[in-house]
């Protein structure tokens, strides 16, 4: 085994990373309302109780609408920006790209309050739509980061070859560039979707009376009796996202194998 000390350290670090995640299913199946050891026995009642939670389903529906819209919009904006920054030179490129990428480091609360001030100032009522506006702002830099690496990997002469063989810029984009950056587009959508689905602050500030899943979860933490159900919900969410990520990772690797590239890292 290579890297003895480092391997042991990394495994220890992974235990730290996984500590909360491992507890999640344990308490989801624990037959007790208090989230603490010792465990009280096995039950699936929190999962069945989930179905009859009144606030959960509207929140889930809102979250899905927001996450899907955010994924599509930020990926479209990401494709435009990534293509512009990798393929073209234009005046003001550095400051413009800097501004677009700023939310990557900006605390979410700043984005949330500044948007809130503007929206209330011009009288736009808070709704799902305003949450989408905020989420797109926040996820677009991630989409750009992923898509830029996809566009950078493209040999410029592939595009020229398509023109040379009679295609227009539009059909060359469709026939050559789009298929080649497709893994990047899928990654970008998945990441944006997941980030939006999990985002709390912006949804909390800009959602108005519309509650998203994280806002719902946050509100339930105030009632200890509701917490086991949240554990059950969290377990399902983790299982789904791990499944989704595994599928995405599988397709990413297959995509790399298909285009003959070398696997050099994750899709982040």
């Amino acid at each position: 085994m290579k890297g003895g000390v480092f391997r042991i350290y990394t495994i220890g670090y992974l235990l730290f990373l996984y500590a909360p995640v491992v507890l999640l299913p344990i308490f989801a199946f624990n037959d007790g309302t208090v989230i603490a050891f010792p465990l009280q026995g096995f039950t699936t009642r929190w999962f069945t109780q989930m179905w009859s939670e009144p606030g959960l389903w509207p929140a889930l529906k809102n979250s899905l609408i927001i996450a899907v819209s955010t994924a599509i919009l930020s990926t479209v904006l990401g494709v435009l920006a990534a293509r512009a920054s990798t393929r073209y030179r234009f005046p003001g490129k550095a400051p413009v790209m800097g501004l677009i990428m700023l939310p990557l480091v900006l605390p979410e609360i700043i984005v949330a309050v500044s948007l809130l001030v503007v929206l209330l100032g011009i009288g736009i009522p808070l709704s799902i739509f305003t949450v989408i506006l905020g989420h797109v702002l926040m996820t677009t830099p991630f989409a750009i980061a992923i898509l830029t690496s996809a566009f950078q990997g493209l040999d410029r002469s592939l595009e020229e070859a398509a023109y040379d063989l009679g295609e227009t810029p539009v059909s060359a984009f469709r026939l050559v560039i789009l298929p080649l950056v497709m893994p990047g587009i899928i990654s970008s959508m998945l990441i944006s979707f997941t980030l939006s689905l999990d985002e709390f602050i912006i949804a909390f500030f800009l959602g108005g009376t519309q509650v998203t899943l994280p806002v719902y979860i946050f509100s339930q933490f105030r009632f200890p009796a509701s917490v086991p159900v949240i554990m059950a919900l969290g377990t399902i969410l983790v299982a789904l996202s791990v499944l989704l990520l595994t599928v995405a990772e599988y397709y990413r690797r297959r995509g790399i194998a298909k285009s003959g590239g070398k696997d050099t890292g994750g899709f982040l």
């Binding site: 002469s157 592939l158 009679g166 285009s259």
Partner: peptide, 27 residues
């Protein structure tokens, strides 16, 4: 470029990696 009676062999060959040999030739 796409309307000119010329065709080019690129330095990097620019073979479309997502297509088969036949699909490349028929492009």
């Amino acid at each position: 470029a796409n309307k000119r009676p010329t065709n080019m062999v690129f330095q990097s060959y620019a073979i479309f990696p997502h297509l088969t040999v036949a699909e490349n030739v028929a492009f």
